[in-house]
Amino acid sequence: MKNHILPAIKLTAVLIVLLVVVYPLMVWGMAQFTSGSGKGQTIEVNGKKYYSNIGQTFNDDKYFWSRPSAVDYNAAGSGGSNKAPSNVEHLQLVQARIDTFLVHNPDVKKSEISVDLVTASGSGLDPHISVQAANVQVKRIAKIRGIAEGNLQQLIVSNTEKPFMGLFGPERINVLKLNIALDNLK
């Protein structure tokens, strides 16, 4: 063991240079060529900056709602509910979310509420909702904003992100981008 100690120390030192200094610098260098320069992708609206990949709380009736979050969209403390499918407390919470949704959206049938609108995401920061989750909110927003339902449906279609290369993974809608577009509609 003794004659391995010094080589181990020296080898660790040179590997630290390669893996902890050179490698991150290379990645950092690559990131400088991207749109956000490695600081995350952002959208600027009226001089205000938003992270397009980080979900936000949207619970105002005039906006498309985002999904429930176990951490209230705290982007400095991500996490899910970690509730088991059999957990009674969890099931009661889901039921309560359905009831709340129906109070705010009286024109909607219960069977139209998409499950992503009443369950919390894994990160608590999910920036997306499903297409059906956006559609089910159209009537409420049309009424409050006085916009024709057809225009809102148009907006949803133009904000729907297709599967990767048209083939892989689900369709989804970035709630922040959709709501920014909604604000610009007037």
């Binding site: 509910s81 970690n82 069977s111 894994g122």
Partner: peptide, 17 residues
């Protein structure tokens, strides 16, 4: 509970995935 459950078990999951 009678909702549209077609996306599957979404508790703890992300829509984009």
């Amino acid at each position: 509970m009678g909702i549209d459950n077609s996306l599957g078990a979404m508790e703890g999951k992300e829509v984009r995935i």
